[in-house]
């Protein structure tokens, strides 16, 4: 059994892992199989993470965070969590492989998932002109005319990035002001390849096998017009990834996991949450990292309050999920003992 399992591998998950590992808790980080490193893996230059005056590439930043956690004895596994049972003193986390891992504490740092437009044909044309990742797919739109929908920093960043490839990028936004930071707005407004379409929303998507165009509706007048584009990058925000925890963890009206005040404490003892999954407002790499710190410290405090006998079972982080199939494992002296003995 582990002392701590961390679900998620973005800035919140890895920072929690760094703190917990330095506290000797040998956390097990379940990083997911295909989304390791979280949202920053799909960004290019990160210019607002302190300590990197020249900026740093998102994927590189995440690799460094992972390396820092592993340096202090965090174990990172590339698996997906399929279900959790967080109610008891011993928490159970089931992976896609069927393995079950147990821990005395769990930090939920599952982040958020791209929000969809919710328009007909969106799913069908995903990957056929509609994309959520400019850095992944931008290069396929060399010399094309494309559109980005959204008004936040990610929409601005995507629009600017896409002008490296596209001849023209329409930036579609529902309102007449952006919520993006000023520096990002200015870059978009000054970019000659970007045309901003204010007070506009996508009302229909067209295309047979490939995206061919959009219908835009003016949010003030209701008037509709057609826009011929071969690419549409959707950057309208994210929704907290909470589906694993329905019925176990309390949520807020915004859909994030509810925590107690400025702490990371959920409604369940021993279960903590950090990062975008609790944050409907700020959602920055730095705030997620800070939130991960809070969770690690809260969890550490909680573990210290548990009876010694219970902690003994977890010390050394005997991990039945990866134990040999014979049901045996090595005890701290290197002797092969049966799992039931090790737990007694």
């Amino acid at each position: 059994m582990n002392q701590m399992i961390i679900i998620g591998s973005g800035p919140a998950g890895y920072t929690a892992a760094i703190y917990a590992a330095r506290a000797g808790l040998a956390p097990l980080v379940i990083a997911s199989s295909v989304e390791v490193g979280g949202e920053l893996m799909n960004t290019t230059e990160v210019e607002n993470f302190p300590g990197f005056p020249e900026g740093i590439m998102g994927p590189e930043l995440m690799e460094k965070m992972q390396a820092q956690a592993e340096r202090f004895d965090a174990t990172v596994i590339y698996e997906d969590v399929t279900s959790v049972d967080l109610s008891g003193e011993v928490k159970k986390v089931t992976l896609g492989s069927g393995e079950v891992h147990e821990a005395l504490s769990v930090i939920v740092a599952t982040g958020s998932a791209y929000r969809k437009l919710g328009i007909e044909h969106e799913d069908r044309l995903s990957g056929y002109g509609i994309s959520w990742c400019a850095t992944c797919d931008g290069a396929f739109f060399r010399k094309h005319e494309i559109a980005v929908v959204g008004g936040g920093d990610s929409a601005m960043e995507e629009a600017n990035f896409l002008t490296r490839f596209a001849d023209k990028v329409y930036l579609i936004h529902r309102r007449d002001t952006f919520r993006a930071s000023k520096i990002m707005q200015d870059r978009s407004k000054e970019n000659p390849k970007i045309e901003i379409l204010y007070n506009s929303e996508v009302s229909a998507i067209h295309g047979d096998t490939q995206l061919s165009g959009l219908t835009l509706r003016d949010t003030l007048t209701g008037e509709e017009r057609e826009l011929e584009v071969t690419g549409l990058f959707v950057a309208i925000g994210n929704d907290p990834r909470v589906h694993l925890f329905h019925g176990q963890l309390d949520l807020t009206v915004e859909g994030t996991i509810a925590v107690d005040g400025r702490s990371s404490k959920t409604n369940l003892e021993g279960v903590f949450a950090a990062g975008d999954v609790i944050d409907p407002t700020y959602r920055q790499a730095v705030t997620a990292a800070a939130s991960g710190t809070v969770a690690a410290l809260d969890a550490e405090h909680y573990l210290a309050s548990l009876p010694e006998a219970l902690l003994q079972q977890a010390t050394g982080a005997v991990d039945e999920g990866s134990a040999p199939a014979s049901g045996s494992t090595l005890d701290p002296d290197g002797e092969l003992v049966s799992l039931s003995d090790a737990r007694s």
Partner: peptide
Amino acid sequence: EWCGPCRRVGPI
């Protein structure tokens, strides 16, 4: 080469 998700799915 530059596609992060591609590197994840390759080993799978």
